[in-house]
Amino acid sequence: MPIETWLIFILGFMIVGSIIALELKDLLSAVISVGIVGLGVSIAFLLLEALDLAIVQFLFEIFALIILVRAFVGKEYHIQQPSTAHKIQILVTVMALGLILALSINIFKLLPEFGDPLFTTAKHYVEHGAAETGSANIVTSIILDYRAYDTLGEVTVLFTAILGALSILRGVVDKSSGGNHETK
């Protein structure tokens, strides 16, 4: 099967996962459904030969899942004892996942051999990077030219993080010190 089919399949899976996450009443299940989106993006990056992004996305997704589960679900969530029906559900899920993995073996064969030095995109960057961007530092030419949109996202993340920290901490300071920390 061509890569496009798998990408469309993963995209549909992600859309279904996000809709389920919106509709579910149970918090833990909703958090796990949101996780489908992140892991789907990670697999899509893998298929598009952006291995570094796939690894970053995967790690980030695991971290986010753990934090979300810990923060939102935490204490009040009651873990139910597994019943027979529940066990059958788990068995069906595991078998479905195994089936998907078995079907996708062909697509993983399309990836370059392990230890192959340059992927097609990376080869282009290395060979034409200096000529196309005029930058002697190839890393800079990638993060600020080829993938400048990604850097814009990073800047936005930084901006939002700083805004969040400021708004939370400033509220505390204002209450306790009467807001006189603004004086120069």
Binding site: D145, A148, T151, L158, I162
Partner: peptide
């Protein structure tokens, strides 16, 4: 002075990172 907008973007990002990090530390 080469490579077009890359140095400009570098300067902007440098400004953003240095002021942002410092403001957060100051707030803490």
């Amino acid at each position: 002075l080469s490579s077009g907008t890359i140095p400009l973007l570098n300067i902007v990002i440098g400004l953003k990172v240095c002021t942002g990090l410092f403001v957060v530390v100051w707030t803490l």
